[in-house]
Design a protein around this nucleic acid. Structure first.
Lengths: 206, 206, 206, 206
DNA sequence: AATGAATGAGCTTTCATTCAT
DNA sequence: GATGAATGAAAGCTCATTCAT
């Protein structure tokens, strides 16, 4: 390893260190209540050091949120459903994957939801890069399944929003209930199985 | 009306005036970005006047959130389902009422969700007064229906959370999509009907 | 005097108090070295109070400089020379008036000259509002006198710049030499008389 | 050349490199607005390197200003007028040389004038080493010429200050008017000739 | 009870300076 | 000698809160 490489490694590590600290503090206190000294202390660096890696507090927020957006978005695009898989399997894997992301990143999601309200540019980005394409993808898929006679006829855009909304809401409830709440105690696969069944079959007895 | 009563009436009215202004400004800008001068201007009073009615900015926030909690909670308790009504009708009216509250108060809900994270005491209150009793109520009701063979057997706590989560998530999506988004353009009863059907029947063709 | 009038009087007085303190501190330390706490202390108010009267430190600078620019400019426009007065009398009164302004406001002038270099907008304003019109006025006047055979033929723009430059330079020298320097010890009218004679007759013996 | 000599040569060169960069950046942005990273980049060295050659930012400023003072002063002392040359020729060469220095170094001069106000020690040095000796020299010379009946009788100290002041003022006006201003478009010799004539003969028709 | 000017603690950000490499 | 990341003091500015009127 050359000296340059080692240096770059340290730099990257230091940036990550600050990123992690910011994520933690933002999650705990919210963006406005979090202070740069808070983050510096959490990261174990001086205040000024943060500004060697991020242009501003807002930049730090963006880099956290954008990382999350990209994750959300790319995975969404990658998982284009193979024609072969059954409808139930697709819904199940969709819920599994999405719900996991939501539950595991509840902190960032909460942060995102909160900041999106007051930052129009952020909202535009999130809408364009995440909401619209993901909704579109799902709508197309559901349309296909209806055409194939697998799903019943319904107002697709509403169903898509209800489905995604349910996942978002579950993540939020999980966060409100906290570490000891039901959502964290139930095995992930049980949760996914039950929610999948709800979406596919509803609660009514046939 | 005695002089004392008239005075109290004016006082109450003035307090309401400030409350409304604070609700509006907090909803629009979020707690931290909202300033007392903002609220004073919106209420049409001087900055100092606000402190004659509320002890602090935080006190103002609490009174708004508590008001919302009470509303949510009381309505939840009042609407105990008559044994007579059909399962479908109950679910439909539940979704209708809850979703309406969520959509119409998306701003306050957002505020609540955000502040709950950073104020443990607030979270405790919300959990105890709203989350737990409402979840319990629904769980009991669903259990009853299952016993009556109207609903299929399922993991009740998860279904309850999925149902409530869906409503929360729909309110959030509605807020993200904004004024011109789909959620605001669809007639409320269409929305409710479709979501109700989804919950009752699922999306799979029988 | 009504209560409102008294209040406005106090407000005006407070603003002046801050203005004076800022002028003093800026003059002594220069714009960048002067701090808001410096000015606050000099004015005998709290830091925050300054921001109740001026939007920013830069705004405070502008208000000082603009006051000076207006003074310089308006007087220049008002003193349009009557056709009747003799050339010598005009030059004498011009030097008298201008030099007095320069000497009495050497601090602000110094400040202006310094900040003009780094603030293009300020430079544009100063050039448009002071330099160009004043130079033009003088050029026209000198042209008139040449046509009337009172002044010898010369490159008018250069003469104008040399004349104004001399006044500026004298003010600067006065400031460098300080309180005990020659420029402050000589009676103003002697100074004016000598400079006037220099401009009119030169130093060569005829 | 020994190794030691070569090393010292490199050292000297590096110091000059930093000096030049600092001069450039200070001139452009002013002392306070200029940053050490600015200067380092302009010099093509690292920030830390600057501190191997200069103790502080202020030290760098001093070394620049002192260099300029020495230049101004030495040239002033060196050009002692030969008795032989005519009065007109002396005044002309004085204006030519001084005005050229002023115009070509307007940036440094500006810097000097600005910093002199806030640094008493610097002012003392400048006064003692530049102002006093140069004024004295000129005063003596003018006195001589008056005695020789070449110049008319006048208040010599004032005339000296007016003459030097004119040169300073012209440099400043040149800077205010900027690249496209009149002062930069007129050929240097025309400027010098006109100013010389003004000083010698004045503007009045004889 | 209503007012709003005054306050100053506390925020984000900058940058001269240091020092381990 | 050269480097540039780390540092933290100190700046400009905001705004919740107070209190004399």
């Amino acid at each position: 390893m050359t000296r340059r490489e080692r240096k770059e490694g340290i730099t990257k590590q230091r940036k990550q260190q600050i990123f992690d600290a910011a994520l933690k503090v933002f999650s705990k206190k919210g963006f406005d209540q979090a202070t740069i000294p808070d983050i510096a202390q959490e990261a174990g660096v001086a205040v000024g050091t943060i500004y060697n890696y991020y242009q501003s507090k807002h930049d730090l927020l963006l880099s956290i949120i954008k990382g999350y957006i990209v994750t959300e978005s790319f995975i969404g695009l990658l998982e284009q459903p193979p024609e072969s898989s059954s409808a139930a399997a697709f819904i199940s894997s969709l819920i599994n994957e999405r719900l996991s992301i939501g539950l595991d990143n509840a902190d960032v999601m909460q942060l995102l939801m909160s900041e999106i309200q007051h930052d129009p540019e952020l909202r535009r980005q999130y809408t364009e890069q995440v909401v619209v394409p993901n909704f579109k993808l799902l709508e197309e898929y559901l349309g296909l399944r209806i055409a194939k006679d697998t799903f019943r006829l319904s107002n697709i855009p509403i169903v898509v929003r209800a489905l995604i909304g349910m996942i978002i809401g579950l993540a939020i409830i999980s966060k409100i209930e906290g570490e000891t709440g039901l959502m964290r105690r139930i095995p992930r696969q049980v949760l996914v199985a039950e929610v999948t069944k709800l979406i596919l079959e509803g609660i009514e007895r046939k």
